[in-house]
């Protein structure tokens, strides 16, 4: 049994184009952002799930917070609420699509300071669309709290958390005092699918909308203007594949055909 106390957890969720379904314009090679469904980032869903799991275990509250370019699909905010968040805070800025990690961390930290009272902040290891892996550590720095990236297991123990982390060359177990920021990937849990009932219940939960001016930013201090990295161009690299499904009535025949192809093309050499 663990002896954690109730925790107030803020989860940073980014609404992003579903990259698996994003097509390139056949003429320019640019992404067709006008023609793609949006979703909550894969790892942000893991973060939400982990927050909900901790709440179910120890009690407490879960806030979802998101910086979006206005009018985020309402069903995605509802989804976050249905997955377990108790309240959603949506920071709207029309230039949010151009936010780099510097601007994102400045804006989210302003939101989190206004929100107050959290013990733990959860972020994805990286966002689905940008995968900068920066916002978590930057946010921790801006809020002057410790950060542990790549958490794979979290246990609450009173005023501290025991966190398992997976790095490239080692796994470590760390004990950390609260408040704390963690980043998580797909290894930490399996996010739940909200039920219809939970989705209906979600619409009764509060969603608070903030403009940048509500967070103390001055006119002209938009996400785009505060960004240090500017994107000039986005393109799909060319990739051509033959896409031949190898013929054969049996596994043996197909394997023989493949072996022949590999030898013919000089991809396998006879010793």
């Amino acid at each position: 049994m663990s002896d954690g106390r109730p925790l107030t957890i803020a989860v940073c969720i980014k609404v992003s184009p579903n990259t698996a379904q994003l097509r390139a314009d056949s003429r320019t090679g640019a992404p067709r952002l006008d023609d793609v469904p949006y979703r909550i980032g894969t790892f942000d869903e893991n973060a939400l799930e982990e927050a909900t799991r901790l709440k179910e275990q120890h009690g407490g509250k879960v806030f979802a917070i998101s910086l979006t370019a206005g009018a985020p699909p309402q069903e995605l905010i509802l989804r976050a609420l249905a997955m377990g968040a108790d309240e959603a805070y949506v920071i709207e800025d029309p230039t949010a699509e151009h936010a780099d990690s510097l601007a994102t961390a400045r804006i989210l930290s302003a939101g989190l300071k206004k929100l107050e009272g959290w013990d733990l902040i959860l972020c994805g290891e990286g966002s689905l669309d940008a995968y900068n892996r920066q916002a978590g550590p930057r946010l921790a720095e801006a809020l002057e709290i410790p950060v542990l990236t790549h958490a794979t297991l979290v246990e609450a123990r009173g005023e501290s958390l025991v966190v398992h982390r997976a790095l490239e060359d080692r796994t470590v177990i760390v004990e950390a005092a609260l408040p704390l920021l963690l980043t998580v990937g797909q290894e930490i849990n399996e996010p739940r699918f909200p039920t219809v009932l939970q989705i209906m219940g979600a619409s009764r939960k509060p969603t608070v909308k903030w403009a940048l001016s509500d967070l103390g930013f001055r006119e002209g201090e938009t996400a785009a203007a505060m960004s240090g990295v500017k994107t000039l161009e986005v393109y799909a690299p060319r990739e051509e594949r033959r896409r031949v499904s190898l013929p054969g009535d049996s596994v043996e025949e197909m394997a023989a055909e493949l072996a022949r192809t590999l030898f013919e093309q000089g991809l396998v050499k006879v010793e």
């Binding site: 510097l102 892996r133 550590p137 990236t149 790095l167 490239e168 990295v229």
Partner: peptide, 23 residues
């Protein structure tokens, strides 16, 4: 751009309030 290096670069960039491009 290891996991550790990315954390260091991000934290440094935030303290210095500058941009950082990843990977």
């Amino acid at each position: 751009a290891t996991a550790h290096g990315t954390e260091i670069a991000s934290r440094l960039a935030q303290r210095e309030e500058v941009g950082c491009a990843s990977e």
